[in-house]
């Protein structure tokens, strides 16, 4: 720590004491203050929206919360007729499909981003990036249809052979109906790849040329420059793109419900049908009668919010540990 004076917008600079105190109008007229207020309003609005969201989810789920307490999270029964509700199969399905989707999407997305940013000629890179950004704008119902008409028939065709060799592994065992955790994960992976590619590419392109030149000067190969310098430099941005992809996967509704089978059960096998939180809300909300049923569905929304927060926090912790590890080495 040196003798540097740190100033924040709220704190007057020491030299300011010499002048008379400015009125608010004067400060606003200079522009800086106005921009400060405007941007601060933007920032606060996000907190406000999030706060209102959580507040509403909390208030309108109270009957279910009081009735089931923490058991709601660990119970597997979902029985609207008898008013028994548990979220576990949906939480499980949401987490499993999202994580599996990321496992599939990260290598593909990152590979494509590195190719587009580092290796491909600029014209090819720009054309492909345009196409990828188009993919991100395709409505999810279209991905669902692709799942039903292309992916599931293809998976159904190859699965018997696949299961002959790998069926003994619990996660690949059991009867494959086409609709499954696995099919949902593959569709989700296809949906989130464009996010990873287009953001990661931008971040990779923004890495200063000096970094590359320094590495080259040390005699590194092109791949060493990319993998040892450019990618680590852009790591934070790449992680950001993965978070965005994760958020999309966790909340995706339409495409998932079309290919997951909508069965409220927990299965070790990825080949079995399942259910996700977003899918069950979309499926049952319109016809839900009775306060307890409605509140249980809204509580699922609250749970999804919590799941998203927890996974994001864990991912950030992971990133933090990776970064400190890097510094030490």
């Amino acid at each position: 720590m040196g003798n540097v004076v740190i100033s924040t917008p709220g704190m007057p600079l020491p030299s300011e004491k010499l002048f008379r105190k400015q009125t608010l109008v004067e400060r606003l007229r200079k522009g800086d203050e106005a921009v400060h207020l405007l941007t601060m309003a933007g920032g606060w609005s996000i907190i406000l929206i999030t706060g209102l969201l959580v507040h509403h989810l909390w208030v309108y789920s109270r009957i279910a919360r009081h009735q089931f307490g923490w058991h709601f999270l660990v119970t597997s029964t979902w029985d609207p007729v008898n008013g028994l509700f548990g979220a576990w199969p949906f939480v499980y399905g949401t987490v499993v499909t999202s994580l599996l989707a990321l496992i599939i999407a990260i290598p593909i997305g990152l590979g494509a981003a590195i190719f587009l940013a580092e290796l491909a000629p600029r014209s090819v890179s720009n054309a492909l990036t345009f196409l990828i950004e188009l993919l991100a704008a395709v409505p999810s119902v279209v991905y669902g249809l692709i799942g039903i008409f292309l992916l599931i028939p293809a998976l159904t065709a190859i699965m018997p052979t696949f299961q002959k060799f790998f069926g003994w592994i619990p996660i690949f065992s059991g009867t494959f109906y086409g609709v499954s955790y696995f099919s949902a994960s593959v569709i989700l992976a296809i949906m989130v790849v464009p996010f990873i590619v287009s953001i990661s590419r931008e971040v990779l392109l923004a890495v200063p040329i000096a970094q590359r030149e320094a590495m080259m000067a040390l005699g590194a190969t092109k791949w060493e420059v990319t993998w040892r310098t450019v990618v680590p430099y852009a790591r934070q941005g790449i992680m950001g793109s993965v978070f965005l992809a994760l958020a999309r996967a966790l909340g995706e509704t339409m495409a998932v419900t079309m290919v997951i089978g909508n069965v409220a059960q927990v299965s070790t096998s990825l080949m079995a049908p399942g259910y996700t939180i977003a899918a069950v809300i979309a499926n049952e909300f319109t016809e839900a009668t009775g306060d307890l049923y409605l509140h249980a569905l809204i509580e699922l929304g609250l749970v999804l919010f919590a799941v998203t927060m927890i996974i994001n926090a864990l991912a950030r912790l992971l990133m933090l540990s990776v970064r400190t590890g890097e510094v030490v080495s």
């Binding site: 029964t77 979902w78 029985d79 609207p80 007729v81 008898n82 109906y177 609709v179 089978g261 909508n262 069965v263 409220a264 049908p273 259910y275 499926n283 049952e284 016809e287 839900a288 009668t289």
Partner: peptide, 11 residues
């Protein structure tokens, strides 16, 4: 009900 706890099947 309009939704029930199905003993078997896909949705």
């Amino acid at each position: 009900g309009t939704s029930v706890k199905w003993p078997v099947g896909l949705g």
